[in-house]
Lab assay of single mutants.
Amino acid sequence: MTYKLISNGKTLKGETTTEAVDAATAEKVFKQYANDNGVDGEWTYDDATKTFTVTE
């Protein structure tokens, strides 16, 4: 399945996607992506749209 990340960081804003077997796997990928880009904030997940959002 395709999962989307919306980043509302102070230094990184935008969207990216990943293919993953489940939401937990996608979350690990996205949290590593955010960490690699210096984004640390509040996370939410919408199962209906398969979208994670991180806001700093």
Rank of each mutant, 00 (worst) to 15 (best):
T2K: 09
T2E: 08
T2C: 14
Y3V: 02
Y3F: 13
Y3E: 03
Y3S: 02
K4T: 15
K4A: 05
L5V: 03
L5C: 06
L5T: 02
L5A: 02
I6C: 06
I6H: 06
I6D: 03
I6M: 07
I6R: 05
S7N: 05
S7P: 04
N8K: 11
N8G: 06
G9W: 07
G9Y: 06
K10W: 11
K10P: 15
K10N: 11
K10I: 13
T11V: 12
T11Q: 10
T11W: 14
T11P: 06
L12P: 05
L12W: 15
K13L: 12
K13F: 11
K13Y: 11
K13Q: 13
G14V: 15
E15R: 05
E15D: 06
E15V: 14
E15L: 13
T16M: 15
T16I: 15
T17A: 07
T17F: 15
T17N: 06
T17G: 03
T18Y: 11
E19R: 13
E19I: 15
E19D: 10
E19N: 13
A20N: 03
A20Q: 07
A20V: 04
V21E: 11
V21Y: 11
V21N: 11
V21K: 13
D22G: 03
A23M: 12
A23T: 07
A23N: 05
A24C: 13
A24W: 09
T25S: 13
T25L: 06
A26V: 02
A26H: 00
A26W: 00
E27L: 15
E27F: 15
E27S: 06
K28D: 05
K28A: 13
K28V: 10
V29K: 09
V29R: 08
F30E: 00
F30V: 00
K31F: 05
K31T: 05
K31P: 00
Q32D: 08
Q32H: 06
Q32W: 05
Q32M: 09
Y33P: 00
Y33A: 02
Y33W: 15
Y33Q: 04
A34M: 10
A34F: 04
A34G: 03
A34H: 03
A34P: 00
N35R: 15
D36P: 01
N37P: 01
N37W: 12
G38N: 09
G38L: 06
G38E: 06
V39N: 03
V39G: 03
V39R: 02
D40V: 14
D40S: 13
G41K: 02
G41H: 02
E42R: 08
E42F: 13
W43A: 00
W43H: 00
W43F: 05
W43K: 00
T44E: 10
T44G: 07
T44Y: 10
T44W: 07
D46N: 09
D47H: 10
A48S: 12
A48V: 11
A48H: 10
T49D: 04
T49K: 06
K50T: 03
T51G: 01
T51C: 05
T51Y: 02
T51E: 03
T51M: 03
T51V: 06
F52C: 00
T53W: 10
T53D: 01
T53Y: 13
T53R: 06
T53A: 05
V54D: 01
V54S: 01
V54G: 00
V54H: 03
T55C: 08
E56Q: 10
E56A: 08
E56F: 09
E56I: 12
E56K: 05
